[in-house]
Write a protein that binds this DNA or RNA. Structure first.
Lengths: 199, 199
DNA sequence: CACCATTGTTGCCATAGTCTACATTGTTGC
DNA sequence: GCAACAATGTAGACTATGGCAACAATGGTG
């Protein structure tokens, strides 16, 4: 037998594939992601990934799900490290989101792709968990009387849309990275002003 | 010679390819767009498109450029048909943008893709022309004292980000089409409130 | 220890994108 | 007119990919 240091069974191929795939997506985009090249990089044959991901889309779905988990974790860290004050928390959360979006633009695009047909159950749950951070934030703002009352989901959508839009503008190159912080500050301030219990 | 009703030269292959490509993108997404299938649908050999688009990305760039032109035209029509009042114009423009975004989600994604390396000159010009509608809108709002003064670009970015974010939310399926109108109305109202010359 | 599910491997096929050589048509200068 | 040349289309080759099926190795379980 050839002197392969690798055993027949990889041990945790699925995890290795996801890690390598995430790296490739970040560095070269989704289009460049190839199942076969992935297999080569990890050191298995081209058919091996099929045991863990029936087809390419299944891998992309798994990547998106993992992306939501990481996004949620980063948002949680940001909000927890921003003290108790609402506006500081709001700004920290928005900044963390945009940071994720610029660092992993291709991954975010994947997460928002509408291609997730079928068993998107797990994916939706992951997304909901990630966005629960924002919902709690909205509820805090309402409790403190800084934000208008109403369904948190409805208020949150406008906020979320704005942040997501900023991320899109930056990662598409329509806005320079230098204007980023300024834009985030503008948008959050704008949001608070527009939400302040009017009337 | 075989009885081909088509002459050797197509006449306007480039236009035909773009039209068919746009249809395919709308109906089946960017991933499904194949140069060879496109050639078959139009009735030319698989090598013919190469004369007009050096590679696949060139076709996508051209699609994006055409998309900006059409988006600009639709925004212009919307704003011109909304009377003179600022808020009506604002709402009409936002609605038109979101309508475009939902009808041609894949095309919009293409337009915002960061892949447009190199000669993106023509593309950027097309984008600027499309967004000039929004800039004029901002300027009107400022002239009428409804919006805060300041660089129109800066104010406009927040508005544009919000609208773009709404479009992303809807076309990703995170927001139902039914909530769409409500969300657009919320967002535009929110924007005006937040921009109203504070202090 | 025999049986079976899991996980990898290898080979095959259809299709895609890209490149090169060649064919046809349109145009332009003489 | 027409000869040279540019523009446009065709045909074939090459490589790579995704997906499938048959087979091999491993690990767990009765």
């Amino acid at each position: 037998m050839p002197v392969t240091d690798r055993p027949y069974h990889h041990g945790n191929l699925r995890t290795a594939l996801l890690a390598e795939a995430e790296r490739t997506v970040r560095e070269r985009g989704v289009q460049e992601l190839s199942l076969r090249e992935l297999a080569r990089q990890v050191g298995v044959s081209h058919g091996a990934p099929r045991r863990h991901f029936p087809d390419r889309q299944a891998l992309l779905d798994a990547l998106a799900e993992a992306g939501f988990a990481r996004l949620g974790a980063e948002l949680r860290i940001a909000i927890d490290g921003a003290g108790e004050e609402f506006e500081a928390r709001l700004h920290a959360t928005a900044a963390a989101y945009v940071r994720f979006a610029t660092r992993d633009a291709a991954l975010l695009e994947l997460m928002f792709a509408s291609k997730h047909g079928k068993q998107s159950g797990a994916l939706h749950e992951a997304a909901d968990r990630a966005f629960s951070v924002m919902l709690e934030l909205i509820e805090q703002g309402q409790a403190e009387g800084i934000l208008d009352h109403g369904e948190p989901e409805r208020v949150g959508l406008v906020l979320f849309a704005t942040i997501q839009g900023i991320a899109a503008l930056v990662s598409s190159g329509m806005v320079d990275a230098e204007q980023l912080d300024e834009l985030v500050a503008d948008a959050t301030a704008h949001f608070v002003r527009g939400s302040h219990a009017a009337a």
